[in-house]
Design a protein around this nucleic acid. Structure first.
Lengths: 330, 330
DNA sequence: CTGAAAGCGCTTACAG
DNA sequence: CTGAAAGCGCTTACAG
């Protein structure tokens, strides 16, 4: 069934040591010997046991990333950027899902048990236990999509509130006054709250009413845009625009405008966040904050690999810039 | 830094064996002893080394799933369904991404090196090398989203072509004659091709023109819907409806209808596939094939766990039914 | 270039 | 209920 290094060695008429060298230090083995070993290995369907290898050597090239959700394109991009970079460095990326900080602690325990070379976390909300476990393990870790200081080791991200602030300014500068916020009230609410704070700061600075806020607990929130418009209209009949916590919510708002026969942006303006694929396609095009998810993933990989291989990093915190993409909706 | 079982044993004044038993067979250890051991373990921040454990025991509770993409909500649902079930059975789910069959072979090699308890694959397109490696390893594997017979071991899915056939029939039964297909021409094209075949079969059976086909190579294809309408209109000016390979493509088609001022479904009908979140939200609501992604994931988990724990399964192939959700677009 | 010895951190099966 | 011995499949460091 599953053959071992010893099996291959016996079949090839060499010692296990030589088989090992064929994989780890090929140049140390006579070409002929190596070819024979590799040929018999292939014939036996031998796959080196990484479990044994990593136990014996105390090293491995596995990075494990933890995300709160798989159905979030920002995280998907981060994972892709991270994966591409790690592949180029011959590290392997493994993924785990943890919906909330409590679950994350469990998941981290399992991950640590496997002694990875590094860990990538999403966001900055972790239980004390998670932080303690990771710190005690000494495994390098980077928190992604972080807008504040790292709570554990290293971090990459940008200011979520600055991005929302900039977007809100853009809407205000169009001359609009009655602007609402469609937000989320979900487990990983810190990230959503920061965006909301950016919105409120911009509104207050402009001397505008900053309490037209509607929060939804739905994670996949096309409906959120519709509900926000309905709810905010009751608080302020003159509502002219909606700034949204994500493009999905914003797209929902756009669908609702279409349903009501409202011209966008003449009758109503909508601002998104995330620059998902849908932003470019939903008419009349969604003005959105474009975050560089892949860049964040790549930066996380760079930090990790540098830390793993040199034991230190140039700077523990990396900023990956965002930009505002202006389309037809604002 | 990272303490071992021996460290804990020494600190607690017992043998390593007893520490091990505290985790594996708690009832075999005197309550007092156990408490002392667990307390000192916690104090030392000890996390059992699963690498060593699994090497010594020859067992582990890790299932690794391979998906071609993270930004596909069907697969995301499958992984969620799988993850929930495995969690309930105290197995751990690890994920790996492989964009195409070649990359999958590499990834599988790494996975096999880690000797998982089971493997979940997506779709039925695998290299011969992948199949050989897995079969030789003897690790149980289930292919998901499969419409044909398993090429390796076990499978769960449904007939992709039947689903597309049923949907096309629905459109035809509305009295529409000039119906196009917006498809994909991507690496994992088998799955897309099968849907297309279902479309063509329905058209041919109805004695209708079945060559109004437009394929796009874009993976995130809102644009695909627009391009299909543009291209097919040149081939057939009377085009009345579009059946789409995914809801994303269909949503794009709907956006294009809005842009052209076409009433849906009076002037133009659009059928989707997948029943993604967007289907319910994009006006006037997308009629779509609802696949049970979570159900597929769960069934895959059930097959795997049964095979792992009993060495056999009742039936190697499981069908997870789909349904057609009728909304406003057809 | 090749290999015999010791050990990685656990668990198995067996004594006490 | 507790523990000394052997071994999981590799790699390290060292001889030859």
């Amino acid at each position: 069934m599953k053959s071992t290094m010893a099996d291959v060695a016996a079949a090839a008429g060499v010692s296990p040591m030589t088989v090992s060298n064929c994989y780890k230090h090929p140049h140390k083995v006579h070409a002929e010997t190596r070819e024979k070993v590799l040929a018999t290995a292939a014939a036996l369907g031998y796959v080196p046991n990484l479990i044994a290898s990593s136990l014996a050597s105390g090293h491995n090239r596995t990075i494990t990333a933890v995300v709160p959700s798989l159905s979030n394109s920002s995280f998907a991009r981060t994972l892709e950027g991270l994966g591409d970079f790690l592949e180029s460095q011959r590290y392997e990326l493994l993924l785990a899902v943890a919906e909330d900080p409590q679950r994350e602690t469990q998941v981290i325990r399992g991950i640590l048990g496997r002694r990875p070379a590094g860990i990538v976390l999403t966001g900055g909300e972790h239980t004390q236990e998670t932080i303690r476990l990771i710190q005690q393990s000494g495994v390098p870790v980077v928190e992604t999509w972080l807008s504040s200081a790292p709570s554990i080791d290293m971090a990459v991200g940008f200011s979520l509130s600055d991005a929302a602030y900039d977007m809100t300014r853009l809407v205000i500068d169009k001359g609009l006054r009655h602007i609402g916020w469609a937000g989320h009230n979900l487990p990983d609410s810190q990230r959503y709250l920061q965006r909301q704070q950016g919105f409120q700061k911009a509104m207050e600075e402009a001397g505008l009413r900053s309490d037209l806020i509607h929060l939804t607990a739905e994670s996949e929130g096309f409906a959120g845009g519709r509900l926000a418009i309905e709810a905010l209209l009751k608080k302020e009949r003159r509502l002219q625009a909606l700034c949204c916590v994500t493009d999905v919510v914003a797209a929902g708002a756009l669908f609702e405008c279409a349903r009501r026969g409202w011209k966008v942006p003449a009758r109503f303006a909508v601002a998104g966040y995330g620059d998902y694929q849908i932003a470019a396609e939903v008419p009349p095009g969604l003005t959105s904050v474009k975050t560089n998810g892949a860049g964040i993933g790549r930066a996380a990989g760079e930090l990790l690999v540098q830390k793993i291989e040199t034991g230190q990093v140039d700077d523990r915190v990396r900023r990956v810039p965002y930009e505002i993409i202006v389309r037809g909706s604002v």
